[in-house]
Design a protein around this nucleic acid. Structure first.
Length: 155
DNA sequence: GCCAACGTTGGC
DNA sequence: GCCAACGTTGGC
């Protein structure tokens, strides 16, 4: 079992939206970066745990957790001409992009903000806070997950 | 809105 | 295969 961090712009899809999706969970579509795609397609397993991060917003922060409920399958938005994520080079026969399903697990009592993480030495190695880091799906260590989950749950 | 950092594209 | 131009991400 492994740990990951997913970014989402809350204006597009927030932790509340994920919670509202309920037990069905939601299809995580629209990943259009090859490195993130490879993690998604090759490494994410059912039961893997996810830190849910709000990006491009007033207070960037990890706001809750989720769990992977379905491994990779072709991203439906890639072959949907109506979707902003449509990619003509991705076909049903040879999909280029993939999705997984995730399900809401918790919303933090206290969001763990980016600025806090930058100032917290035990989290100094996090990929998220490295200079120039932009990956929208990235691995997290068990230690990082434990620290952040504790902070978020307990405030 | 600015801009640094990074990824992708395409001509050569 | 190089690299300039362009597009995107995302904090500030």
């Amino acid at each position: 079992m492994r740990y990951w961090l997913f970014k989402s712009e809350p204006d597009d899809y927030s932790i509340s939206d994920l919670q509202l999706a309920g037990e069905q969970g939601t299809c995580w579509f629209g990943i259009r970066n090859y490195q993130a795609r490879n993690f998604l397609r090759d490494e994410l397993q059912v039961g893997d745990l996810v830190l849910f991060y709000h990006s491009s917003c007033k207070q960037p922060a990890i706001v809750g957790t989720a769990v992977v409920t379905k491994t990779a399958y072709p991203d439906p938005s890639a072959t949907d001409p109506q979707s902003p994520y449509f990619d003509a080079k991705s076909t049903e026969a040879q999909p280029r992009w993939f999705s997984v399903d995730i399900q809401w697990q918790s919303t933090f009592y206290q969001p763990v903000t980016l600025s806090f993480m930058k100032q917290h030495p035990p989290l100094a190695q996090m990929y998220l806070i490295q200079k120039g880091s932009r990956l929208s799906l990235q691995p997290v260590t068990a230690e990082e997950w434990n620290i952040i989950n504790k902070l978020g749950v307990n405030g």
